[in-house]
Design a protein around this nucleic acid. Structure first.
Length: 944
RNA sequence: GCGGAUAUGGCGUAAUCGGUAGCCGCGCCAGACUUAGGAUCUGGUUCCGAGAGGAGUGGGGGUUCGAGUCCCCCUAUCCGCACCA
């Protein structure tokens, strides 16, 4: 029988669908395992071959775990809200709801063709009201909680109110926007709006005037991870800093726990490092510097990681946004400072970042006093100090900070050395070409700290300023709160309404607050959210949801919040929803989360390291504080699949003769030809299909070719996969041509899952040939099965394969699994193996990789059920026993040599084997070895 | 600039521990079968050399009886962050 993959695959896909064999139940006796893929944005372009790479890897692991006897949760869904979907809708002029629906259908078709074992009964879509009900619900909880640093967790805001009524801010340690201090008496005297205003300072979801990333082109604000180099990630449009009243999530409150949690998870070091850098924890000191000559005792706070260099401060710098500037600037400097601040403000974020090397700044005319030396030091204003980090003010130590050094050199400010690389190695800083930033070395010219090592000096200086009451040891994070509102249409509406300008959340019973249909969903340049067009909706929903009916009158037409939530809102907790996807009473039941706990294996791209993976961890930690999630970290193990790049093909057109195309090997000088992208679908192993090329474009119909060995060989280059380069590979074409099993095997065979690699189909034939060979092996054995016992040789091949496949699947080395199967098929083919008891376990073994062919073979072997319910074959080591002498070596008058033996070989057996070998006798000189050292598993060193 | 990763034949890669470098596949070469094409099968294929032999895992050094693998320095490429005090 021929290997008819089309018939086999459609038959089994249909059967799986009808039998619902991938449906998973919560509970049962089997151990549980949760395998999750990062769910896709259903974009208009459909899936390309890069998408399924991770899905195939996770599917292999899920199927493997299932065959090992685990109850495996392996769900899939769609991240359908957010900018990409909406941008696509705007481009095509269709409503996002419609395009999203179409795209999802297309994605589903493409996914189904590849034969995944997803439990589609648990599908979630972030744009489905039954799903986003819980996104909105979580927002309400975030609004209703604050972060208590003493308890180190989120607590209900009601507890905070109670505390304020009892003792004001006395003794409170809580994450907040601005530090506040008031007494219980003051709190109790305030009215409701005033109190709410104060509480907003502490809520985990809060409204505040924030310097945001405003993208005029997209008509919305963006989070920090959505902006790279001053341009929006989505679309690449310029982004400017703008002060706007926006919702934010107080993710910074969790900064330390987000750092600490990385210790517990099994992620790659590089991804953990990306997160650590993004959170940017740095230890140092906060120090108050008084402004000189002020009767009101005015002072300002700075943050430094180098308190030991405080004796080397020669000037102070404030960021242009600093509130103190207006107060301290002297009359003489007022105009200059105002000009500078105005100039700095108008500079786009992109300009500022592009001109980092350019030094700019202005003297304020005011002076500060160094609290340790009593020295008077000038206060400058410069935009190299950032408003968003620390306090927006620094103490400048030009001798030991490269940025301060550049600034001092530019403006001719003094430079004073206070650290020396070697003890007492003091030199004249005016001769220096760069600052000495290293933290190793000794303090010099540093008052009481002189002679100490830098590390000691740091501690001594902090102790001193704490003792003087002018500062404290502190930790600063780079991680900033996540801006949560978007002035866009396609997102979750906020469950928020306003009463006299004060924000209230809707009652939970009213959820979901559904996204209305609007005629015009396009963003506006002014930043007015498109939901403003939905007058009827605002009206009706307010009437339905708002408790206080008096609000619904002509005067307050739009008491609802009109922004929507960003894309990451819906994707932050979806893995929890899969556990209990149809629950209308709760996000997920305690039983469901108690059973599945958290994700055992998460597979997805590393590009989410600073976005989704931070937000999801934050979201989970918050739900953990609420007692809903049962684990502090959501994703135990994480595998980053490498990006698949495109591999473009070129033809080379002669510059002299526009109708002539020269094969790559015949080109003498690349200057004489123009490379032209050609569609990779008409190139096979870099050989051009000349007829298809002629038909491709009218201008190539008459093309002539200078061939090499009768072929036209194309050039190639690795580029981004994109339509314009004609290098997009659609998985459907390959499935049609070779079948899903071949595609699955080939994507894995390409190389390690984690590695970035260009896509090319040059080897796919080989993988397809293997499947045919594998099929024939079974086919001939089924036709005339061998009688009697399988040979030791055959058993050895089988057990070698079981061992290697099991080990390699365990360590996610799927490319070597494919190789192992190829070797196995070659060897059994050579042995002409027709023993069904040798072949049957192989059908199970290959089921995770190539489920369709496995299912068909399983069926042909006479089994009624699915191969998915089979048991993973057990490795039996006794078939592999062998021995082999490796390197005999003599040294130090002793003999030592190394022997390779089977894993279960005993010491005595090892010695017997060695002594039985003629060389062994010679090396040992007839003597008994004195010492046998088992070094690794297999190799034994023997010392005589 | 800081941080992380990677570097092996013509190509993708393999070599769980330090133990005969190059498994498996592509491509290429030769052959078998075939009217032909396709499909299938067999043998060969790191480089230099006719051969004996020699060289060889980006470059240089080190540890070791033994290094692709461990350590130090350098180079190139990729990724992340980027005036973060």
């Amino acid at each position: 029988m021929e290997y008819d993959f089309r018939a086999i695959e459609s038959r089994w896909q249909k059967s799986w669908r009808e039998e619902g064999i991938y449906r998973v139940e919560n509970g049962g006796d089997r151990p549980h395992y949760y395998v999750l893929d990062m769910f896709p944005y259903p974009s208009g372009a459909g899936l390309h071959v890069g998408h399924p790479l991770g899905y195939i890897a996770s599917d292999i692991f899920s199927r493997y775990k299932r065959l090992q006897g685990f109850n495996v949760l392996h769900p899939m869904g769609y991240d359908a809200y957010g900018l990409p979907a909406e941008q696509y809708a705007i481009q095509t002029g269709q409503h996002p709801a419609l395009t999203t629906e179409q795209n999802i259908r297309r994605y589903r078709e493409q996914l189904d063709k590849i034969g995944f074992s997803f439990d589609w009964s648990r599908e979630v879509r972030t744009c489905d009201p039954r799903y986003y009900k819980w996104t909105q619900w979580t927002f309400i909880q975030l609004f209703g909680h604050y972060y208590d640093r003493a308890a180190d967790k989120a607590l209900p805001i009601a507890a905070l109110e109670e505390r304020f009524a009892r003792q004001g801010t006395e003794g409170l340690e809580a994450a907040c926007t601005e530090p506040m201090a008031f007494t219980a008496a003051e709190w109790n005297a305030w009215d409701e709006p005033r109190r709410r205003q104060v509480l907003m300072n502490y809520r985990l979801a809060y409204l505040a005037d924030t310097a945001v990333n405003w993208c005029p082109e997209l008509g919305t604000v963006l989070a920090n991870d959505e902006v790279v180099g001053g341009l929006s990630v989505r679309g690449g449009y310029p982004v400017e800093r703008k002060l706007m009243r926006q919702w934010s999530l107080r993710i910074s409150a969790y900064a330390q726990r987000l750092v600490d949690g990385l210790e517990q998870v099994d992620w790659t070091d590089s991804l953990k490092e990306i997160q650590r850098n993004w959170i940017g924890r740095s230890e140092g000191a906060a120090v108050w510097f008084p402004v000189s000559g002020r009767e009101d005792g005015l002072s300002f706070e700075i943050f430094t990681t180098r308190p030991d260099t405080i004796f080397g401060v020669t000037f102070m710098v404030l960021c242009p946004e600093h509130e103190l500037i207006a107060t301290i600037t002297t009359e003489a400097q007022r105009q200059q400072v105002a000009d500078y601040v105005a100039w700095a403000k108008n500079r786009s974020e992109r300009e500022r970042q592009a001109e980092v090397k350019r030094v700019s700044g202005v003297f304020s005319g005011a002076y500060a006093v160094n609290p340790l030396t009593e020295e008077k030091i000038p206060i400058w204003v410069s935009d190299y100090v950032l408003a968003g980090y620390g306090t927006g003010a620094i103490m400048a130590v030009p001798a030991h900070d490269s940025r301060d050094f550049a600034f001092a050199r530019h403006f001719g400010l003094p430079i004073r050395q206070v650290v020396a690389a070697e003890k007492d190695a003091v030199s004249d800083p005016s001769t220096w070409t760069e600052s000495l930033d290293s933290k190793s070395g000794w303090a010099v010219n540093s008052g009481f700290a002189t002679g100490m090592k830098v590390k000691e000096a740091m501690k001594a200086v902090i102790d001193k300023i704490e003792e003087m009451g002018i500062g404290r040891r502190t930790v600063n994070y780079r991680l900033r709160d996540a801006i949560f509102s978007r002035q866009r249409y396609w997102g979750e509406p906020f469950p928020v309404y306003y009463k006299q300008g004060v924000a209230y959340t809707l009652p939970e019973e009213c959820l979901p607050l559904e996204l209305p249909e609007v005629d015009d969903f396009k963003p506006t340049a002014s930043g007015e959210p498109p939901l403003g067009h939905a007058k009827r909706w605002a009206w009706d929903e307010v009437k339905r949801c708002v408790v206080d009916k008096s609000l619904v009158d002509e005067a307050t037409v739009f008491p609802l919040e009109l922004s929507t939530m960003p894309g990451f809102a819906g994707s932050s907790g979806y893995y929890l929803r899969y556990m209990d996807a149809h629950n209308d009473e709760a996000y997920f039941s305690p039983e469901a989360v108690g059973y599945w706990q958290n994700v055992d294996l998460y597979v997805g791209g590393a590009e989410h390291g600073t976005g989704h993976l931070i937000y999801a961890r934050f979201w989970n930690k918050f739900l953990f504080d609420l007692g809903l999630a049962v684990k502090d970290e959501p994703f135990k193990k994480l595998i980053n699949q490498g990006m698949i790049q495109g591999r473009s093909n070129f033809v080379y057109r002669s510059k002299q003769d526009n109708g002539l195309f020269i094969s790559k090997g015949r080109i003498k000088n690349m200057e004489e030809v123009t490379p032209i992208h050609v569609d990779i679908n008409m190139v096979d192993n870099d050989v051009l299909d000349i007829e298809r090329f002629r038909r491709w474009r009218p201008e190539f119909a008459e093309a002539r070719f200078e061939l090499e060995e009768g072929k036209y060989v194309c050039g190639w280059e690795v580029e981004k996969m994109s339509k314009s380069m004609f290098n997009v590979q659609n998985p459907d074409d390959l499935v049609d041509r070779y079948g899903a099993d071949t595609l699955r095997l080939y994507e894995m065979f390409l190389g390690p899952v984690e590695q970035a690699k260009p896509w090319d189909t040059n080897g796919i034939e080989g993988v397809h040939r293997f499947l045919k060979k594998f099929w024939r092996l079974f086919d001939s054995a089924l036709e005339s099965p061998a009688e009697g016992e399988p040979s030791a040789e055959e058993m050895k091949v089988l057990h070698q394969t079981i061992k290697r496949v099991t080990d390699d699947v365990e360590r996610f080395s799927f490319n070597t699994v494919v190789s192992t199967f190829m070797i196995c098929a070659n060897q059994l083919g050579e042995l002409r193996c027709r023993h069904l008891e040798v072949l049957e376990p192989l059908a199970v073994l290959i089921a995770p990789l190539a489920p369709h062919i496995a299912e068909e073979l399983w069926h042909r072997l006479g089994h009624d059920g699915s191969v998915c319910d089979a048991r993973w074959p057990q490795f039996d080591g006794r078939w592999l026993v062998e021995s082999k002498v490796k390197y005999p070596v003599q040294f130090n008058g002793k003999m030592r040599f190394t022997v390779e033996l089977a894993a279960d070989c005993t010491q005595q057996q090892a010695l017997d084997i060695i002594k039985s070998m003629p060389e062994g006798q010679k090396w040992l000189g007839g003597a008994e070895p004195k010492k046998v050292i088992f070094v690794p598993k297999k190799i034994i060193n023997i010392v005589c």
